[in-house]
Simulated scan of single mutants.
Amino acid sequence: MAVYLTVKLAGAAYLVFLGVQAFRHRKQLKASQISTRPAEPARGGLRTLLDGVLVGVTIPKGVLFFAAVLPQFVEHSAGHVTLQMLLLGLVPISIGLVTDTLWGLTASAARTWFARSDRRLSLIGGAGGCTMIGLGVTVAVTGRAD
């Protein structure tokens, strides 16, 4: 119990420390620094898509989910079980592709918008610092009551 409490309080203190540092240095975020960073080598859209597919296919959780859930929705008497499984599997994959693409485009647009203003960057840095301080305090005062 004492080790748990020590680790918990040390983690909470570290979160508060990081939050204070982020809040104190929020004015150092400059739009010019973000937009003038050295460019990374460009990746093609197809390469990025293939990387995402590889990651998605190799996550065991996804494979187990499809193996456990999809067979319940297959109508064996209709035949073409393999085709039914493929079509049922394509539905969540298609939904995920569309929603993840929209999230990525939205995040890119938000980053560009924030990066155009030093004031906006300062507000984001301050909000992030306050959030970490709040999380650290929450971790410190909540938990098991053994």
Rank of each mutant, 00 (worst) to 15 (best):
R26T: 07
A13R: 03
R119F: 11
A42E: 15
L88I: 10
L88N: 08
S35K: 02
H76F: 08
G128K: 09
L87W: 11
D51R: 04
L88E: 06
T101D: 04
T142L: 01
M85T: 12
F65P: 01
I34A: 11
T138M: 03
L88C: 12
Y4P: 00
K8V: 00
T131F: 08
T99N: 10
F17K: 04
A31T: 08
V81M: 14
A78M: 07
P60H: 09
L88K: 08
G128N: 14
W103T: 03
V74A: 06
V69G: 04
A22W: 03
D51H: 04
Q28V: 12
L5D: 15
G52H: 06
V139S: 12
K61H: 07
Y4K: 14
A2C: 02
Q21F: 12
P60E: 10
L50D: 05
A145F: 15
A145N: 15
I34G: 06
T82P: 05
D100V: 12
G52V: 08
G104S: 01
D51I: 13
P60D: 11
G134R: 01
G52T: 08
E40V: 09
P38F: 06
G136T: 04
G19R: 02
V137W: 03
A145P: 04
G79C: 06
H76Q: 14
L97K: 05
L18W: 02
S32K: 12
G11Y: 09
I93L: 14
